[in-house]
Simulated assay, not measured.
Amino acid sequence: MPKITMNINGRETSTEVENRTLLSTALRENLHLTGTHIGCDTSQCGACVVHVNGKAVKSCSVFAAELDGATVDTIEGQANADGSLNVIQQAFQDHHGLQCGFCTPGMVMSAAELLKVNPKPSEAEIRDYLEGNICRCTGYQGIVNAIMAASGQDVPSIAAE
């Protein structure tokens, strides 16, 4: 089995993986980073979104062996240095952007990339950007409100849709 080395959440990490091992599986099973959720294994739900070399990627759609030397950021690396929630995580808590929590890691990681490329997105832009992330619980309004709040914008007082 090939040995790969990646910078994961700021730390150089090595593991052996079969060529067919998906990044989501390597993170969860080899490296015990279980915050990355596997919801569908077909790249449909977005629960497994991580950042690879600064870009949001559905980790169930890429082989870990292809990422030797890559930088990977997961939900475990999103908290502040003191362990407190970062601004996006806190906004999800404050604005009820989660319910069961299964989709939350992928939503937070997608939101982080969105706010990096568009620091003040409109509600429509947020909804469009999250099209590849599925949530079965919240109705999305809390998630949209959380992302708007994390961007420093006023949160609209819109009833949940």
Rank of each mutant, 00 (worst) to 15 (best):
N19G: 13
R20M: 11
R20F: 10
R20D: 03
R20C: 01
T21K: 09
T21H: 03
L22R: 14
L23R: 07
L23S: 08
L23I: 10
S24A: 13
S24R: 03
S24H: 02
S24M: 10
T25F: 13
T25R: 13
T25H: 15
T25A: 10
T25C: 11
A26Y: 04
L27T: 01
L27Y: 09
L27K: 07
L27S: 01
L27I: 05
R28A: 04
R28C: 01
R28G: 00
R28N: 12
E29P: 11
E29F: 09
E29I: 06
N30E: 06
N30Y: 04
N30H: 13
L31I: 06
H32N: 10
H32M: 09
H32R: 08
T34W: 10
T34C: 08
T34V: 15
G35H: 11
G35S: 10
G35E: 15
G35P: 10
G35F: 12
G35K: 13
G35Y: 15
T36D: 02
H37K: 15
H37C: 08
I38H: 02
I38C: 03
I38R: 05
D41Y: 01
D41W: 04
T42W: 07
T42G: 07
T42V: 11
T42S: 10
S43E: 09
Q44E: 05
Q44V: 01
Q44W: 01
C45K: 06
G46W: 06
G46F: 08
G46Y: 14
G46S: 09
G46H: 07
A47Y: 05
C48Q: 12
C48I: 07
V49P: 02
V49S: 01
V49E: 04
V50H: 04
H51K: 11
V52Q: 07
G54H: 02
G54K: 02
K55N: 14
K55R: 14
A56F: 12
A56Q: 10
V57I: 15
V57E: 03
V57F: 04
V57R: 00
V57Y: 08
V57W: 10
K58V: 04
K58G: 02
K58S: 05
S59G: 06
S59H: 04
S59L: 08
C60Y: 12
C60V: 03
C60H: 08
S61P: 07
S61R: 07
V62I: 13
F63L: 15
F63R: 12
F63G: 12
A64H: 04
A64W: 00
A64L: 03
A65C: 11
A65P: 06
E66N: 12
E66H: 14
E66Q: 14
E66T: 13
E66F: 13
D68A: 15
D68Q: 12
D68W: 06
G69I: 08
G69V: 07
G69T: 06
A70V: 11
A70S: 15
T71H: 14
V72L: 05
V72P: 00
